[in-house]
Nucleic acid binder design. Structure first.
Lengths: 210, 210
DNA sequence: CCTAAATCTTACCGGTCAGTATAGTTACGG
DNA sequence: CCGTAACTATACTGACCGGTAAGATTTAGG
């Protein structure tokens, strides 16, 4: 019972070696789960991808479900990092709002148009209370909150409305890009977003920026 | 070799009995594949759901993959029927454009928020050339064409642009409704669509309708 | 250098899956 | 009413899956 370290997600008392192994496992899980689908990918393949045995995998994660949840958590963390990196390049909140589309396009393209990992997870796991589904929900909620905050900063009269519209546009563009194999739709959705953001700013009496 | 009827999708020389069995199989496949996911649903469960044996299933469909493709084809056909039923209630093309959102909301709710079957299929089958993926692509392309036609009829200056924007809104609302368990997003997306359609009509000098 | 943690090796379990074989039975249509 | 198409019953194959067992071995770190 003392060695039940498999379940915690934070770096408790793990050695550097174990830490590195865990990293390789999560990296392998990320690549394989995303590219091939979760149910279609066996744990053995992930262990092999990490250069490790199935036994070692199970000493880091107590079950496949838990590994899946961590896989999505990692995706979420990396996404937030990439997003904030993008946003930091801009000062004005309305520019930041549009920069979210740039971050999306980058993600869409880098994933070879396999779609949103969180949406795909929802497709594979109908159970809304599956640990991975909780992570997925929180991921989307986080983006929504970010958009709402930026919308408020941009002075939109109804920040929640603008945020949801941008959110829906982002989601629609992402899923469309994956379905049709066309990443250009993200940029075209962005053009509509520009109108929405401008209109929201104009409604407040601010000058729109070209 | 003469009995190789399993592969054709049209009602060739099937008896009424076989026809009815095929119907029950497709109905069972629809319910189970959609609710539980395709990979997670075994062919045995579908046969049982149709009240027949696995052997009978395989006398109607040559493989699970083929059954999956037919499952999506059926979905597409039923969707088109439901959509045209909705559209027929309206005369003006701009009203028809918005009625698509009503049809979507109805579909979203009726499916208990399990999302778009075609998107879910894309999530489960990475191979773009999988027969089911082809059906999914054609399904989306069909809707796009319909939207583009209606946009042109509505007199939009750039029908393709309007159509794609509405399409992306529809897709985004659908996936969001499924992810967050909130069907209201479809109606809220519709509100933005109303603005887009009005703007397109206004640009042509037509009076907008309340 | 020695110890304790981390990993490896190998083999196994019970279960599920897609798909097939064979032989027997039912129901429908001419 | 009979022939044939449709379906049943049952058992099987071969593969893969998630997860576990037990003991040997390696590695890092004090």
């Amino acid at each position: 019972m003392t060695g039940a370290r498999a379940t915690d997600g934070d770096p408790g008392g793990r050695s550097k070696r174990a830490e590195a192994t865990r990293r390789r496992l999560l990296d392998a899980a990320d690549g394989l789960f995303y590219a091939g689908g979760i149910r279609a990918t066996g744990v053995e393949a992930i262990a092999e991808g990490a250069g490790v045995t199935k036994m070692t995998l199970y000493s880091h994660f107590s079950s496949k479900d838990e590994l899946v949840a961590h896989y999505l958590s990692e995706r979420d963390a990396r996404w937030r990092e990439a997003l904030e990196g993008r946003l930091a390049k801009h000062e004005a909140p309305d520019e930041k709002l549009l920069a979210v589309f740039d971050a999306y396009r980058e993600y869409v393209v880098s994933g070879e148009l396999r779609g949103c990992a969180f949406v795909n997870c929802a497709a594979e796991f109908p159970d809304r209370e599956h640990p991975a589904r909780r992570v997925a929900r929180e991921h989307k909620a986080g983006l929504r909150r970010r958009l709402a905050g930026l919308s408020a900063e941009a002075g939109a009269e109804e920040p929640e409305v603008l945020a949801e519209r941008l959110f829906v546009l982002l989601e629609g563009a992402y899923v469309t890009a994956a379905m049709e194999g066309d990443e250009g739709v993200v940029d075209r959705a962005r053009r509509l977003a520009e109108d929405l953001v401008s209109a929201a700013a104009v409604a407040r009496g601010e000058p729109s920026r070209g």
